[in-house]
């Protein structure tokens, strides 16, 4: 590390404690945005149920149902759980678990011969 007898030792920048993210909530969405999100969620649920009773080809239906489920999932996580606004560390923690879960269980199901093209997602 030290190239000469003595390295100048300055107090590194990280010594000043990171500012506490007290103001996270200032960046949280307001009541109106929450209500808008909730309306979208309600409409998506309605769309799912309507689609379910329509006479669509199964492949298309499954695709659409998955689309709506993923959108609802993302809306709740990003807005209600504030992942869109909060520190990326939180996002990484959650997304790691989520992606890990999706990938390993997908492999297990594929090994069992159960594919998304079959009769489920």
């Amino acid at each position: 590390m030290a190239s000469s007898v003595q390295t100048p030792r300055q107090v590194p920048e990280e010594l000043t404690p990171a500012p506490r993210h007290e103001l996270d909530e200032a960046r949280h969405p307001g009541v109106r945005q929450y209500i808008v999100v909730a309306i979208v969620l309600a409409l998506a649920t309605l769309a799912e149920v309507v689609l379910y009773y329509l006479d669509l080809p199964r492949g298309l239906l499954v695709g659409l149902l998955l689309f709506f489920a993923v959108s609802k999932f993302a809306l709740v996580v990003l807005f209600f759980m504030h992942l869109k606004f909060d520190n990326p560390i939180f996002r990484r923690l959650f997304v790691t678990g989520l992606l890990l879960a999706i990938s390993v269980y997908a492999v297990v199901l594929v090994i069992f011969g159960i594919h998304p093209g079959g009769n489920q997602g």
């Binding site: 506490r20 520190n87 939180f90 959650f94």
Partner: peptide, 18 residues
């Protein structure tokens, strides 16, 4: 002051949810 400036409990909660 925590090292990241984030709250311990909130980190723990997100790890738990993961």
């Amino acid at each position: 002051a925590t090292s990241t400036g984030l709250s311990n409990v909130k980190l723990a909660m997100w790890a738990f949810l993961g």
